[in-house]
């Protein structure tokens, strides 16, 4: 299947935002394909230390999926916001389907070190993060959007500020508070 052009992806995004399920069904395999490509890359890469390379790869993936640099829209902000929402939707669904941690079991005796305590890998899980993000949205909508745009949408601080109509400094402050709140919510509250 040939990849759709950036123009087609843009149109699909628009259609999806207008409620087209068909458009979403065309976008999902695009993200899936890139996910598998990235995952494959990580599997082959046994040793750590190639971070530069993978960062470039992730950037490339984002460029392919949501070709921000080539969008000639009058409303860039709208496009960014849509892309981030789409990525969130697809990635969280993907994580949910992966049925990570089939059992939630763990040791129920006192152990001497965290070494021996078993629990499903929380915090790394996009599903749990998504739930926490929804709780954050109820308290502070803008902070939740900052996380959606940066973490799910892969936007820079400046682009995030552009979408939300706030300064980069505000984005940074929102980000630090949201990050701490989410981390605490995922790791310390049950």
């Amino acid at each position: 299947m040939p990849s759709p052009s950036p123009h087609q992806v843009t149109q699909l995004l628009l259609d999806w935002s207008n409620g087209s399920q068909a458009a979403l069904n065309e976008l999902i395999p695009l993200v899936d394909r890139e996910l598998h490509r990235l995952a494959h890359h990580y599997m082959r890469q046994e040793r750590p230390g190639h971070t530069l390379q993978t960062t470039a790869l992730v950037n490339e993936v984002y460029l392919k999926l949501v070709d921000q640099k080539h969008v000639h829209w009058k409303n860039r902000a709208h496009f960014f916001a849509l892309s981030a929402q789409l990525m969130r939707r697809i990635l969280v669904d993907h994580a949910r389907k992966r049925s990570y941690a089939k059992r939630g079991g763990g040791a129920n005796k006192i152990t001497f070190d965290e070494v021996m305590v078993v629990s499903p890998g929380r915090g790394k899980d996009l599903v749990a993060l998504n739930d926490a993000l929804e709780r954050l949205a109820a308290i502070d909508g803008r902070k939740s959007r900052v996380v959606e745009l940066r973490f799910f949408g892969g936007l820079s601080v400046e682009e995030t500020g552009e979408v939300l109509g706030v300064s980069p400094l505000t984005v940074k402050r929102d980000w630090s508070m949201a990050k701490a709140w989410l981390y605490n919510s995922l790791n310390n509250e049950s």
Binding site: V31, E34, L35, L38, A39, H41, Y42, T54, V58, V61, Y62, L65, M87, R88, L91, H94, A95, R98, Y100, K124, D125, L126, F151, F152, G154
Partner: peptide, 9 residues
């Protein structure tokens, strides 16, 4: 980015 997290998972 989230796509990186999911790919690593």
């Amino acid at each position: 980015p989230a796509i990186d997290v999911e790919a690593r998972n």
